[in-house]
């Protein structure tokens, strides 16, 4: 029985170790940007620390089970009555407290990191992209470039990106695992997600929050490219794409799945984002810019100011 159990845990530990360290890296543990890197580091740190705890508990358990099993003891052994010892219990409280304090410090530090302009890009002006979801699509509006795409996202590599997230409908969650963790997009406020890609390449992006029948296929493709390629793409869009009209946008919002499409102009002009002074995730540098958007684009909101 004990051997079976040992074997079982050995198998678990081996499986985890092989897969984590193994041939094909898992998306989350294969970061391509500073935010995802911070998160992957936290994850690996906690995995090692937590493995140590599991092993200690397991070791104590196996030891007491072997040593104090009834078949290992004389017939007339009568277990003693032990109330508990303050010293032992203090240790049992003390060590977990130390671990929790340590992890809290790491966690708080990372919180502030992932909620600010990515490390190494602080001196840049971030590019602002509005990412809004509708059943079951993603709309990406580039106000500075004055273009809009559906279901695909082109970004310049080595540049801070500030995503402004909101939803036409159910709560969704904007997630590009290799660039960083997710954040909700909701219908009555705008949330901000700071990301950056350290490398050029193609990444998977999706809505991670269940949003109804078409949820599984609610994905988008992310391509990170050099600034020059990005500028070239913007110019090309301005030359070739149709302008996005109010009617066309209404059509796009209809529930369903669509392929990729590209437009000049953004829907922000006629269907502005639900921005108001939520302001929880913006770093100080970006504050004036944020207000700027609010002034120009927030026509819809009247009753949200008092949240």
């Amino acid at each position: 029985m004990r051997i079976k159990m040992k074997l079982m845990y050995l198998t678990i530990v081996c499986t985890i170790a092989t897969v984590l360290a193994g041939c094909e890296p898992l998306l989350v543990l294969d970061p391509k940007g500073p935010q995802a890197k911070t998160q992957a580091d936290d994850i690996m740190l906690s995995i090692w620390l937590m493995s140590a705890i599991v092993i200690v508990v397991l070791a104590i358990l196996i030891f007491v089970l072997i040593k104090y099993r009834a078949s290992n003891q004389s017939e007339d052994y009568e277990p003693p009555h032990i109330e508990g010892s303050p010293l032992v219990e203090a240790i049992c409280i003390g060590i977990p407290i130390i671990i929790v304090i340590f992890l809290s410090i790491v966690s708080v530090e990372s919180n502030y990191k992932v909620e600010a302009t990515p490390a190494g890009y602080e001196d840049q002006e971030p590019i602002v992209i509005y990412a809004s979801s509708s059943n079951w699509k993603w709309h990406f509006s580039y106000p500075e470039q004055d273009i809009e795409t559906v279901n695909y996202l082109y970004i310049p590599a080595n540049r801070a990106i500030e995503f402004k997230l909101y939803s036409y409908g159910p709560i969704t969650s904007f997630w590009i695992p290799q660039l960083g963790g997710q954040k909700y997009a909701m219908s009555d406020m705008v949330t901000t997600l700071h990301l950056a890609a350290d490398a050029e390449g193609e990444f998977m992006g999706r809505n991670a929050n269940f949003s109804g029948a078409g949820f599984a296929e609610n994905t988008f493709e992310v391509t990170s490219m050099s600034q020059a390629d990005f500028d070239e793409w913007v110019d090309e869009v301005h030359e070739t794409a149709d302008p996005l009209t109010d009617e066309k946008f209404e059509e796009l919002l209809e529930p369903g799945h669509l392929g990729r499409s590209t437009y000049t102009g953004t829907h922000l002009e006629f269907s502005p984002a639900p921005e108001h002074d939520h302001g929880s995730t913006d770093s100080e540098v970006e504050e004036p810019k944020q207000e700027d958007h609010t002034d120009h684009e927030s026509g819809k909101q009247t009753n949200h100011d008092n949240h």
Partner: peptide
């Protein structure tokens, strides 16, 4: 041991920055 495993992964999920990757 099985519950301890569940408990420690709970501590991992509690690290909010990392939770952005675990969530959902």
């Amino acid at each position: 041991p099985l519950f301890t495993l569940g408990g420690v992964t709970g501590v991992m999920l509690a690290m909010s920055a990392a939770d952005y990757q675990y969530h959902n």
